[in-house]
């Protein structure tokens, strides 16, 4: 009789433990989602800044500070330098967006991974407390 009570008591405890683990999993999922949303918002903000910056610089380039020389080598050198700068800036912008996106999903993954590892340990501990009867022939 005692054995049955123990099994029933342990079984209930096991169910409560599992429910608590599930609750913590849900919390972690919520935190991860929040991290992703924050990351996306930062990404959108950065994209807007990039667009503003590009517009501002292209507007600045519309207004030459001094009269251009025409088609001489100096003008060509200026254009080549401008092109190099544009390529480097475009690459830098792309790298920033990529890093922000990777960091945001990395943070979410970190939350989920650490929760998953903890949940596995918790399940192991909960199972260890259930005294199941050994199989009989």
């Amino acid at each position: 009789m005692n054995g049955t009570t123990d099994i029933f008591g342990n079984g209930m405890k096991y169910l409560f433990d599992v429910a608590a683990i599930e609750l913590r999993n849900m919390e972690a999922l919520g935190q991860a989602q929040q991290k992703l949303v924050e990351g996306w918002s930062l990404l959108a903000q950065r994209q807007a800044e990039i667009a503003q910056g590009t517009l501002r610089r292209s507007f600045d380039q519309q207004v030459p500070k001094e009269p251009t020389v025409g088609f001489g080598p100096a003008a060509l050198i200026d254009q080549i330098d401008g092109l190099k700068t544009a390529i480097l800036e475009s690459q830098a912008n792309s790298n920033i967006l990529t890093e922000l996106a990777a960091r945001s999903s990395g943070e979410a993954m970190t939350i989920l991974q650490s929760r998953l590892l903890a949940a596995l340990d918790e399940f192991k501990a909960a199972l260890g407390q259930v005294a199941l009867p050994s199989p009989t022939k």
């Binding site: 830098a92 790298n95 920033i96 890093e99 960091r103």
Partner: peptide
């Protein structure tokens, strides 16, 4: 950000 360091 590393990309800010190597970029801007």
């Amino acid at each position: 950000l590393a990309s800010l360091a190597t970029g801007p």
